[in-house]
């Protein structure tokens, strides 16, 4: 019985905390309503489609393929990203590049975003710094699976 009474005390404390939150938040929400610009008090909710959260500097978003100065993709088709990819979403086919300094280039470079888990291993594996995930494009939903398959041209175009 005494134990229960102690509990009751704690319950009152809990009620006090929630009530405090309630009134403080009501106060700040009211201030917001009448036009004060308060960001971090009241509610912390971000109203998604209208407001967007600032994307972190170290985020990982849609891939892009960087280009050399002449506009050709930097990728040399070493297939390290294809090897390291845990969700097996990158497929590359290589071909001979006429330039002996480059020698190898991808003839096919496909990222299947419907499988991608955005781990960023491909970016880390890339020895040429050809692949990056810093496009800030995170809204990648599509109504069609085919549209989620990005080929070389599309990945290069994102970069421009």
């Amino acid at each position: 019985m005494i134990k229960s009474l102690v509990f009751l005390l704690e319950f009152l404390k809990g009620l006090w905390i929630t009530a405090k939150h309630f009134w403080i938040n009501i106060f700040f929400n009211f201030l917001k309503l009448i036009g004060f610009n308060i960001r971090d008090r009241g509610s912390v909710t971000i109203q998604y489609p209208e407001e967007k959260k600032e994307i972190a500097r170290r985020h990982r978003s849609l891939h892009r393929i960087l280009t050399r100065e002449d506009g050709s993709p930097r990728c040399v088709a070493c297939m390290l990203c294809m090897t390291v990819c845990p969700s097996e979403c990158i497929y590359i086919e290589a071909e001979e590049d006429p330039n002996p300094e480059i020698q190898k280039r991808p003839s096919k470079f496909i990222i299947d975003l419907s499988r991608c888990c955005f781990c960023g291993f491909c970016v880390e594996a890339c020895p040429e710094d050809a692949l990056r995930m810093d496009t800030n494009i995170v809204e990648l939903g599509e109504y069609n699976r085919e549209k989620l398959i990005y080929d070389l041209n599309r990945l290069v175009r994102i970069s421009k």
Binding site: A77, C78, Q103, E128
Partner: peptide, 8 residues
């Protein structure tokens, strides 16, 4: 140039 070397 291991990335483009077939021996890699």
């Amino acid at each position: 140039d291991c990335p483009i070397c077939d021996k890699a």
